[in-house]
Design a protein around this nucleic acid. Sequence first.
DNA 1: CTAACACCGACTGTCTGAGTCGGGATTCAG
DNA 2: CTGAATCCCGACTCAGACAGTCGGTGTTAG
Lengths: 166, 166
Amino acid sequence: MKLSTRAEYGIRVLVALAHADGDRPTSLAGIAKADKLPHAYIEQLVGALRRAGLVTATRGHSGGYRLARPAEQISLVDAVRALDGPILEMPCAGPDDLESCDRPQDCSVHEVFERLHDSLSGMLGGTTLAEVAAGTGGPPYPPAVRRRVVAAHAKSQAASSAAPPN
Amino acid sequence: MKLSTRAEYGIRVLVALAHADGDRPTSLAGIAKADKLPHAYIEQLVGALRRAGLVTATRGHSGGYRLARPAEQISLVDAVRALDGPILEMPCAGPDDLESCDRPQDCSVHEVFERLHDSLSGMLGGTTLAEVAAGTGGPPYPPAVRRRVVAAHAKSQAASSAAPPN
DNA sequence: CTAACACCGACTGTCTGAGTCGGGATTCAG
DNA sequence: CTGAATCCCGACTCAGACAGTCGGTGTTAG
């Protein structure tokens, strides 16, 4: 399980744009240098972001990119989808394509994938660029959830004999 | 973002074992045929599961595999870790390796990855084989969470101009 | 002794992710 | 009007991982 560098870099760029959100566009070259990202590469990423309507570009001298909407209205799920496509790519995840699962009748795993998908897109969809840029890495996610998550984590750690971290 | 087939098949095998949880071991050949999985392949997967202490094997004629612990005590996160390694593989996710992030100071994205990781391992760690096998795809996850997740999903769908499903 | 099973290392093919390259189109400054 | 700074785009490369396969060995029950 991993997020592609496309998504990662893309988000970094968006965050940079959210930060520099003056009225003048920001050049990719600047972001690339500041964040140590390969310029030619993020160029193509940001193309996807533009086509998805998340950023707007102004060309020519002293041109650059701007967020297309205020950072509070751009969620990470938008970014990831624009860059990586489906959030969870599986033969039979996703809330819609329940039928594409070719396993005979009782595909019990199916529901797990769905929940996984929901979990992911819920978390990503619930986080806006503004929050990330502000450093408050996320929305007011009730601490109870966090606690439960951590507890489950710890429990399963204990259960497994010698589970490696991560 | 995707789960490897290793993890998927591995979970399927585990579920099969949980189902057939009599006292006699179950042969891989049977599972492979019943579930239409490549025999030679899951053989190596199940090796990993054994080495991780999730299943035990008995060799020889009419041998096979058994769950090493009751299905209620095996969570999906155990399985995925045994099969795929780290739950979320990133330069700078994971609750522990915060330092491996080489970005200068303000790696704001960092926290996002951590939350993503928590979200994933929380969901996986909170689901046991028994629940999956029983078809109740998960623990008594409070419906409130599910609702919030779906709402966020819908919201972000609406926000993006024409976001594709999944 | 043989068939059914687990076990193992090595091997292969395909695909995708991560980036590069070279050029074109646009705009602004001097 | 020339040149520099941008965005824009398609084509290309290259390495590594993933998904399997293969051939053979060890072990046990009937």
